[in-house]
Design a protein around this nucleic acid. Sequence first.
DNA 1: CTTGGTTACGGCCGCCGTAATAATA
DNA 2: TATTATTACGGCGGCCGTAACCAAG
Lengths: 279, 279
Amino acid sequence: MLDLESVRLFALVAEYGNLTRAAEAAGTVQPVVSQRIKSLEATLGRRLLDRSPRLVRLTEAGTAFLDHARNLLAAHEAAIAAVDIVPSHITIGISDHALGTHLDLVLKRLRMALPPHATMAVNLGQSADIRDRFESGQIDLAIIRREHGTEGGEVLGSDALQWRVPSGWSWSDGPLPLVLLPSPCSVRAVAIRVLDQAGIPWRETFTGGSCLALAAAVRAGLGVAPLGDSIGGDLAMVPASAGLPTLPASQIVMLARTPNPATSAAARALAASVHDLLA
Amino acid sequence: MLDLESVRLFALVAEYGNLTRAAEAAGTVQPVVSQRIKSLEATLGRRLLDRSPRLVRLTEAGTAFLDHARNLLAAHEAAIAAVDIVPSHITIGISDHALGTHLDLVLKRLRMALPPHATMAVNLGQSADIRDRFESGQIDLAIIRREHGTEGGEVLGSDALQWRVPSGWSWSDGPLPLVLLPSPCSVRAVAIRVLDQAGIPWRETFTGGSCLALAAAVRAGLGVAPLGDSIGGDLAMVPASAGLPTLPASQIVMLARTPNPATSAAARALAASVHDLLA
DNA sequence: CTTGGTTACGGCCGCCGTAATAATA
DNA sequence: TATTATTACGGCGGCCGTAACCAAG
């Protein structure tokens, strides 16, 4: 007889492609996942995963098993829901500068970590605003970007800011054309600060409402944008010859209030996903 | 997170209406079932069964949960079958005189205890023939009726033979009209023996191929039939005033050869079902 | 050399199964 | 009074989580 916890861990490993992240998402540690997968394989008499320190992928049997494993877990959820209806709602705030283009993957994994009947509301905005909403209790979970050294929250990783430019861009003279989010925005503020300290003149050529908009502006040649390393996508780095000052790294931090199991499951999944993106 | 073993035990209790039989069918003991059900109820936060020493029945929540529990167990079977195809075939011999009209229920529970991909073949016949087939290895499991004192097999219970008569039957004189299975048949033999020992003349008025046929003949008024207590159905007992000798009780015995887990699961289910019928 | 999977191991929870107890018809 | 569920309890297996180890890029 299989035990569902092992099956759940297997499904998480398949999702994250990584035992360590799966362990985080499940709220345990990596050796436990290793053991459980191993024992699951033993009871099934088949190897489910090819594992090496740098690559974990499904075997043929693992692929075949995965669909059934998900059905099994869904049936488990349904059975519990049949007698134990715990309606839950989670509000989540995400700073655009923290996740950028990875928003879709993170939301998918978040949805997966919640019981199917749970509802969630996501609030995309700027870090300062998100933090205020978290502190006033309007949201339960938040992912924000902030400068090193600030207190509070769980640090999921460090992400350097980079000047991103159109491909083939060069900057001859005149004030540096900047592509920014509107104030208040900590990335905007830090970018302006380092430029001023270096005595580099600048002008704002584009102000947009999300990192996707900033990236579009950069691609259109409107100027350079300070963007997180992990969310720059296909945009080019500024060449060192341009002489721009380096931007400081900042931290991606999770703020979490976990009043119930559903929320802490969501928090773990969020942490594992973001941690994965920054690795 | 639920554990599937507890869910399976719950489903078995629902099927058998009895913790003790469920334990037998599952291959464990009754206190374990009690504990697991209790812990299942605790994790679900609902009472699933109303239990008293004489009656176990589903609560409302239990009814709602049962369907989902069965789906869950089916998904579990499917998941295992996806990677671990163990084709198995079981041949079963059942003496008609042992189960009679309860054949359908027993077969249903047998089917339920087997993995869905397992095939089974049932051989209905007379005890002596069944035993020969078992001993020659042609069948894996057998339920037979036999006289007390014989060796071998697992005794599932004792069942008295009774003279069954049409309703309102009376026997004035002349040889006793008998309704019997053809020879060789141990019930036939023992019936004839006790009549001869009591010096009661008899004649055979009907010879049929199954207990259902014998019951039909009795109902049609053709005579009296020696039938197991538990399978007489709605037929009347012979009145004491008729002066017929009492028939000895005989034992219902299971012969089992369990070369694989599927067969032993079937054996347990068979034992639990028959044990239940004789209680 | 760092990230990440495996192995070793100690502690402890929890389950099994026997035995005694209670409850019901 | 017999049958059956519950409670008590000892023993043991197995799981968790820390730490040390190893492999691969």
